[in-house]
C-alpha cells in the first residue's frame, strides 16, 4: 500500500477532478459528471486519483475520444468510438447515466446499452453508481478475456464480481454491456472473486477524508491548466481590494 500524499474532502475531490478533466479538454458539463463519478469512487473507499489519472492521460494523449457514434434501435443503444480510438469512459459514463433514467421511468428493463472499446470500463460502472441506479448490471470483457460484473442494489450498495486476478478498477479497455440485473446468485464457477461495498463507506469518508496517493500530482497538474497566470495588473486590481490595508 503506497503512502497517502494527501487527504481531500469530497468537496475538494469534486472541485479538483472536475477541473482536471477540463484541463485535458473535457467540456465543463461532462467534467461535472466526471466530478460526481469521482466523488462516488471516493465514497466507495477507493483512491480516485489512481483510477482517474490514466483516464485523463488517455484523453490527453489522444488515444481516447469523447465523440462516439451512437446507434439506437428498439430501445437498444450502441456507442462506438471513432476508428483507431478508444471511447473515453467519461463520455460513456455520462451517456450511460442518461440512458438509464428514461429506461427506469418506462420500466424499459428489456433494453440494453453496449459500448465498444471503452478505455476504462470501471469508470462507467462508477458513473452508474453515482447516478443511483439499482436493479441494473454492467459487465465487460477485456481483450485478455478477463470478465467483470457489477450489480447495483438498493440503498446505493453494489457487488463486484471478477473472473481472474485483475480487479475491476484495474481492468483495461473492453466492450461493455448494461442490462437489467439477473435475479439470482451469479455463477461461482465463472466469478471467482466477489466484493461488496455499501453506502456506509460514504459515512466513513466524511469522518476521515479521501486519501489520494502517488497519482495525485498528475491530477493536480491537469487541474492547474484551468488557472490563469497572475499578471502585475490582475495582481493589483483583478480582485478589487488594495494590496495593503492600513485602515
Amino acid at each position: 500500500m503506497s503512502v497517502s500524499l494527501l487527504k481531500l474532502s469530497l468537496n475538494e475531490v469534486r472541485f479538483y477532478f472536475t477541473r482536471a478533466a477540463v484541463g485535458v479538454g473535457v467540456p465543463f458539463g461532462l467534467a461535472e459528471d466526471f466530478g460526481r463519478t469521482v466523488s462516488w469512487l471516493a465514497c466507495s473507499g477507493l483512491d480516485p486519483a489512481r483510477i482517474c489519472a490514466p483516464v485523463l492521460q488517455s484523453l490527453e494523449s489522444g488515444q481516447s475520444s469523447l465523440y462516439p457514434k451512437l446507434n439506437q434501435w428498439n430501445g437498444e443503444a450502441l456507442l462506438k468510438p471513432p476508428p483507431d480510438k478508444l471511447l473515453s469512459a467519461i463520455q460513456a459514463g455520462s451517456f450511460a447515466s442518461d440512458w438509464i433514467v428514461p429506461m427506469e421511468q418506462k420500466s424499459g428493463k428489456n433494453s440494453y446499452l453496449s459500448a465498444e472499446n471503452v478505455d476504462y470500463p470501471f469508470l462507467v460502472a462508477a458513473a452508474l453508481g453515482a447516478s443511483g441506479c439499482s436493479g441494473w448490471a454492467i459487465s465487460w470483457e477485456t481483450s485478455s478475456e478477463d470478465r467483470f460484473l457489477i450489480n447495483y442494489e438498493e440503498n446505493r450498495s453494489w457487488d463486484a464480481f471478477w473472473s481472474d486476478r485483475v480487479v475491476p478498477e484495474n481492468s483495461g479497455p473492453g466492450r461493455l454491456k448494461i442490462t437489467p440485473a439477473d435475479i439470482g446468485e451469479p455463477d461461482r464457477d465463472v466469478w471467482l472473486h466477489r466484493e461488496h461495498r455499501s453506502s456506509e463507506d460514504a459515512a466513513v469518508v466524511l469522518e476521515t477524508g479521501v486519501a489520494v496517493h502517488e497519482s495525485w500530482p498528475i491530477i493536480y497538474s491537469f487541474f492547474k491548466r484551468c488557472l490563469v497566470p497572475s499578471t502585475d495588473g490582475s495582481h493589483q486590481a483583478g480582485a478589487g481590494a488594495g494590496l495593503v490595508d492600513s485602515d
Partner: peptide, 26 residues
Amino acid sequence: WYYSEEKLEPRFGNREVDPGEEHEMP
C-alpha cells in the same frame, strides 16, 4: 471570470486587457 494561479483567487477579467479568457469559468 477566472481563477488566478495566485492562491486560486477568483478574478474578474477584461477580455481586451487580461490574458486567460480560454480558462473562463462557466
